Simulated assay, not measured.
Amino acid sequence: MTRLLLLDVGKTGCRAALVEAGVRVASGQAPGAGGIAEADGPARALGAIAAATEGWPAPDRIAAGLAGLASAPGRAGALAAGLRARFGAAVEVLLGSDMTLWHAGALGGAPGVVLAAGTGTVALGVDAGGRSARVDGWGHQLGDDGSGYAIGRAGLRAALRAQDGRPGGSNDLLARVRARFGDPDGVPARMYGAANPAREIAAFAPDVLAVAAVEPDADPVAAGIVGRAATDLADAAAAAAHRLQLPARPTGVQPVACGGGLLAAGPVLTGPLDAALTARSLTRTTPLGDALDGARLLLEDPHVPHHALLTAAETPAPGGAR
């Protein structure tokens, strides 16, 4: 009986699943590990994995998706070594970015484009030959356009412009700032002093979306922020599809599997997003699965194109899945 350990190690949470004889027999979770690219990234990731799998039997094979690994592939060796030290020297280890494994799960191993919209934003296209195109995912200081962070930041800026009496402000958003944070004068210290400023700023995105959703007289500033976010998200998906020159579908429309917590806002965001995607010959679809499903697929199917996206340290021993 082959025992598979599936891991999805994100910045905010770590999820694990154990599969025996084709059946998921255990699930676990733990706080996230930050990014693998951080100085202590591998150690924190291994600690999160240990917490999520405490008391579990040793697996025969492991597939893990890790946030930040695409930016720091050189960390794969330390991660693989740490996993083998914990679970046994003979265990087979496959490591990829969390986005790669989510892509595999979202499209069932098929080529195409996925779009993740949460605190950050990233689009990933993969073709049948394993070529990939990642768009955005540059982090809140350099990118993440259309993300919860981008919406929250734009909303806070508009609120503070209203506080100052400058053009382009929104009194509705200012009222939301007061309700959530109190005196606007204290907002900068709260944001700049937060352990995770991007997450703290993104926490205001639901307020912006709520103000934009008010009917029939939605706040034009909030509505404009959400409309810009929808355009940015569609642009990211379109860029990924264009860079790979994915084959045209019979309908002439390329599906994009879209996921992430930001889409839970509903029609206030998905409405303009759908319109922006349609204008780019794209259409939004629901993901078939998640990163844990992608991890299992990589272990069970040596032919999915995502194997080409694994780092050098992930290559299985002779006789393994690949």
Rank of each mutant, 00 (worst) to 15 (best):
T2Y: 01
L6R: 09
D8M: 04
V9W: 02
K11I: 03
T12W: 01
T12F: 02
E20D: 15
A21V: 05
A21H: 07
A26Y: 06
G28I: 03
G28M: 02
Q29W: 15
A33E: 04
A39K: 09
D40K: 06
D40R: 13
R44G: 07
L46N: 10
I49W: 06
A51D: 04
T53I: 00
E54H: 00
E54K: 00
G55R: 01
A58D: 15
D60G: 12
D60I: 00
D60M: 01
D60Q: 07
R61D: 15
A63K: 04
A64F: 00
A64I: 05
L69Y: 08
S71P: 03
A76D: 14
L79C: 12
G82D: 10
R84N: 15
F87R: 03
F87Q: 06
G88F: 08
D98T: 03
H103L: 15
A106Y: 08
L107A: 12
L107P: 10
G109K: 05
G109A: 14
A110D: 13
P111F: 13
V113W: 08
A117P: 10
V122G: 05
V122M: 14
G125R: 02
V126W: 11
D127Y: 01
D127E: 10
D127C: 06
G130C: 07
G130R: 06
G137M: 10
H140I: 04
D144R: 12
G148W: 03
Y149A: 07
Y149K: 03
A150P: 04
A150S: 13
R153G: 02
A154V: 00
G155D: 05
L160K: 02
D164E: 14
G165R: 06
R166I: 02
S170D: 10
N171T: 06
N171D: 14
L174M: 07
A175F: 00
D183K: 06
G186T: 08
V187T: 14
V187N: 08
A189L: 11
A189G: 15
G193W: 14
N196Y: 07
P197T: 12
E200V: 05
A202L: 07
D207K: 03
E215V: 11
P220W: 05
A223V: 10
A223C: 09
I225D: 09
V226T: 08
G227T: 02
D232P: 06
D232E: 15
L233W: 03
L233T: 00
A234D: 09
A234V: 08
D235T: 04
A236R: 00
A236T: 02
A240G: 06
A240Y: 01
A240S: 11
Q245S: 13
L246F: 00
R249S: 13
R249E: 15
Q254G: 03
P255C: 12
C258N: 04
C258Y: 05
G260F: 04
L262W: 04
L263K: 08
A264R: 00
L269I: 03
P272E: 10
L273S: 10
A279V: 04
S281M: 14
L282V: 10
T286L: 12
T286E: 15
P287F: 06
L288K: 14
L288H: 13
G289E: 12
G289C: 06
D293C: 11
D293S: 10
G294N: 03
R296P: 01
L299I: 06
P305R: 02
H306K: 09
L309I: 11
T311E: 10
A312L: 06
T315M: 14
